[in-house]
Design a protein around this nucleic acid. Structure first.
Length: 570
RNA sequence: CGGAACGUGGCGCAGCCUGGUAGCGCACUUGUCUGGGGGACAAGUGGCCGGAGGUUCAAAUCCUCUCGUUCCGACCA
């Protein structure tokens, strides 16, 4: 590629809309341009980086025995009605009608379509297993797209689906994908962790997320300091603590005028927040529910959602809380509450705690579950903290921020049952296929790689993802010897299959150096004054700034060597 | 969807409060010089100030509505 003839519109200044590093740099380096909120054009270099990720994904999928296909982006609503997800999926599913007034949607994921294919084409256990994937543009009408490629509405995803005869075989498929995913992210040069995760609206029994560790990550991970345990904090289970066996004291009503916040009540009553229990009110699919957690804890809404099997859970506003309970927020308590009551298992083990009095300006002291109120359910409902022990081994936990770049699920027979995707087994009986599904955020990987690898001068791509592996700077356009050498290297490297960009623009050296850094190309060859003087060109590595000077005829050999080593290590 | 902010040449911004000639830096064009970390000088091109309505002799500026974008939160395979 010749820089002078390419569309690589680099910017000196950062566009005002970009906050996070990857978004800023992708815009500045001329990799992407925004069309509208959450929707981007991949310019030539941006697309080249995406293609590198796709190449790795395809190679690893092939190695794992998966086959590529391509499904439609526009899908009929009927299919989604079959699984109930046309309602359940929520507003992220972009719905529209076509000219015949038929309901349709843009595919945010493809369980329905792939299951439809399989139920039509798979007859016998002899046809299984199948593992099918595609790399395709997905559309999810996110409430709030942000961070450039990190959370777009339209994005490129690899989604794969496995179909097996039974659980055991499905587990094997899952494990194969788990291993393949590890290879993919390793080859992409990412620092990542597989973690246990919630399976969200895709459904299924068990899942792992692959998280790139980065401060800008939107998810919080808990990672055990001693064992292998790692989980998304929304999933991380907290064991029920030992029940407090101390004797129950008499219930006491305390006047607490104007004391509503946990901190204020605690100060007023001279207790610590962990001695108080707060009553949070949520709405789960339109039905109000109260949740008790310790005063210093937070409710984990994903756990709540899963417990209730609800599609949508949201905290109620003050006014709605009053409408549902007849009590203003701040004085709510479990004793005599009129709505469904769920209790965090930590609270269930407490004795003699303080709660709201279910009456304006009153709190209750020495409240005890079983004596003073009953719960509809006791469960792990709170957000884990780094003070909690590891659920697997009890050791200390660390918390880290992560970006989700992959997610794999054991789906079981949920989809195949409702969609009647069955095969005839050896015993002659029809059985539902056992499914798994596997996603990689292809465009997000590009952003995540930049998030993890950049400095104040620009991106620093790992060799495996770099849109161009080498940039050659011709610093003497008017100097015949320099230009001939740069051109010859350009042709020779291309001949050996190296992705090389020749900066043949009539720009001053400073601009070329700045742009080369900004673009994040791992290797830079400079042909300039040092060539005129000493007959050498320089090879500089973007990641550590190391420079070696070589005669032109040695360059190709050395470059190929560096690339080979980098591709194996990254 | 709740909270906040912002829309002025391609990009980054000033001007708005206190109404009256639309401005700066970068980029772009031409020329001369320059040529190893975003050069200098000179001369230029380009903007009905997001849109609609209103107030006014007069609106980028004041008012109303609307559209768009971003940030925080909630949401998220």
């Amino acid at each position: 590629m010749r820089f002078s003839q390419s569309l690589i519109p680099t910017l000196k200044e950062t566009p005002a809309e970009a906050e996070v590093a990857s978004h800023r740099l992708l815009l500045r380096a001329g990799y992407i341009r925004k069309l509208t909120a959450g929707i981007y054009t991949y310019l030539p270099l941006g697309l080249a980086a995406v293609r590198k990720v796709e190449k790795i994904v395809r190679e690893e999928m092939a190695m794992a025995g998966a086959q590529e296909l391509l499904m439609p982006m526009v899908q009929p609503a009927d299919l989604w009605h079959e699984t109930g997800r046309y309602q359940k999926y929520g507003p992220e599913l972009l719905r529209f009608v076509d000219r015949h007034n038929r309901e349709s949607c843009l595919g945010p994921t493809h369980e329905e379509v792939i299951t439809d294919i399989v139920r039509r084409e798979i007859r016998s256990y002899r046809d299984l297993p199948q593992n099918l994937y595609q790399i395709q543009t997905k559309f999810r009408d996110e409430i709030r797209p942000r961070f450039g490629l990190m959370r777009g509405r339209e994005f490129i995803m690899k989604d794969g689906y496995s179909f097996d005869v039974d659980d055991e075989a499905a587990n094997k498929s899952y494990q194969q994908m788990f291993d393949a995913y590890n290879r993919i992210f390793k080859r992409c040069g990412l620092e990542y962790r597989p973690v246990e995760a919630d399976s969200g609206s895709i459904g299924g029994s068990f899942s792992h997320e692959f998280m790139v560790l980065a401060d800008t990550g939107e998810d919080t991970l808990v990672i055990c300091s001693a064992c292998d345990y790692a989980a998304n904090s929304e999933k991380a289970e907290i064991a029920a603590p030992q029940a407090d066996e101390c004797p129950m004291l008499d219930l006491e009503k305390v006047e607490t005028p104007g004391k509503r916040k946990v901190s204020v009540v605690c100060e007023f009553m001279e207790i610590a927040p962990h001695e108080l229990v707060k009553t949070m009110v949520y709405e789960a699919d339109g039905i109000p529910v109260a949740v008790l957690v310790r005063g210093d804890r937070e409710v984990q809404e994903v756990k709540l959602k899963n417990l209730l099997g609800a599609a949508d859970v949201a905290m109620l506003e003050d006014k709605a809380v009053f409408d549902a309970t007849g009590v203003p927020t701040g004085y709510l308590g479990p004793v005599g509450i009129k709505i469904k009551l769920l209790v965090d298992n930590e609270v269930a083990a407490m004795r003699n705690f303080v709660t709201g009095g279910n009456e304006k300006n009153y709190h209750l002291k020495n409240v005890n579950m079983g004596r003073d109120f009953e719960a509809e359910a006791i469960a792990d409902l709170r957000q884990i903290t780094d003070q909690d022990p590891c659920p697997a081994c009890g050791a200390k936990l660390g918390m880290k921020k992560g970006l989700e770049v992959g997610h794999i699920f054991k789906l079981g027979t949920g989809y195949s049952t409702v969609m009647n995707a069955v095969f005839q087994d050896q015993d002659g009986k029809d059985k539902p296929v056992v499914m798994g599904c596997y996603g990689v955020g292809v465009s997000r990987i590009v952003a995540a790689a930049i998030e993890q690898n950049h400095d104040e001068n620009g991106m620093i791509f790992p060799m495996s993802l770099a849109p161009m592996q080498v940039i050659i700077l011709n610093l003497g356009l008017k100097d015949a010897a320099i230009t001939e050498t740069a051109e010859a290297l350009y042709l020779e490297l291309q001949k050996y299959g190296v992705d090389v960009l020749l900066d043949d623009r009539d720009e001053r050296p400073g601009s070329k150096f700045k742009d080369a850094d900004l673009l994040g190309i791992p290797l830079r060859i400079t042909v300039g004054k040092r060539f005129t003087k000493d007959g050498v060109v320089e090879i500089r590595q973007r990641k550590d700034g190391s420079v070696e000077e070589l005669e032109p005829q040695q360059v190709t050999h050395r470059i190929l060597e560096i690339i080979r080593i980098a591709m194996n290590n990254d």
